[in-house]
């Protein structure tokens, strides 16, 4: 493991845990970074090392919006439903994404390409309505532009998977 990742690396953090209070949330955050979500076994590891009962850890996980107990899709859509976006009809965009992908908020598409979340504010209110897909922000959206963006990403993802399969065979 390269040194620069050490502070957030899950196994390193677990190993380094010295009983200092307040480490549960950072441990969960690095578990999620490591696995992409928080699997059952990560909860067990953390419980063993910290002596915090699994049920308490589960309680903390479900209290905060950031933590996921299910694996997420390849691309994460964060659709902003903050006040400025709401005023700019972001509800319409939620409906559009749901219709285009056939999933509910929090759900993942069958092909594992997309997971849809809504977030309270991405802080680019002057570009409202906005969504973020992975690290990229898309602003001033309309139902038509949302569909176009999603179809583009899906095409690329499928192409990539096909290429990978071809190489493997």
């Amino acid at each position: 493991m390269p040194d620069k990742n050490r502070d957030t690396d899950f196994t390193y953090r677990l190993w380094r845990y010295d009983g200092a209070p307040g480490e549960l949330i950072p441990l969960l955050q690095s578990a999620q970074d490591h696995f992409g979500y928080i699997p059952r076994r990560a909860i067990k590891y953390i419980s063993t090392v910290t002596n915090i009962p699994e049920s308490n850890i589960y309680g903390v996980i479900t209290f905060y919006n950031q933590f996921r107990l299910q694996p997420m899709g390849e691309h994460q859509i964060k659709l902003c439903v903050g006040t400025a976006c709401h005023v700019s009809r972001s509800k319409l965009l939620v409906e559009t994404v749901q219709d285009e992908l056939g999933i509910e908020v929090g759900g993942t598409t069958e092909d594992g390409i997309f997971t849809l979340f809504t977030v309270a504010c991405l802080g680019c209110c002057s570009l409202a309505p906005v969504m973020m897909i992975d690290e990229e922000t898309h602003g001033r959206l309309t139902p038509a532009s949302v569909r176009k963006i999603l179809r583009g990403i899906r095409r690329q993802a499928k192409q990539k998977n096909q290429d990978a399969q071809l190489r493997a065979s």
Binding site: P21, G22, F63
Partner: peptide
């Protein structure tokens, strides 16, 4: 300390609970 996404943690006593690793 990175917050894990809970609006109530803007309330100071909830924020302390969260830093301490508890539900906020």
């Amino acid at each position: 300390k990175q917050g894990a996404g809970a609006f109530v943690c803007g309330e100071e006593t909830a924020l302390f609970a969260s830093i301490e690793g508890e539900r906020g």
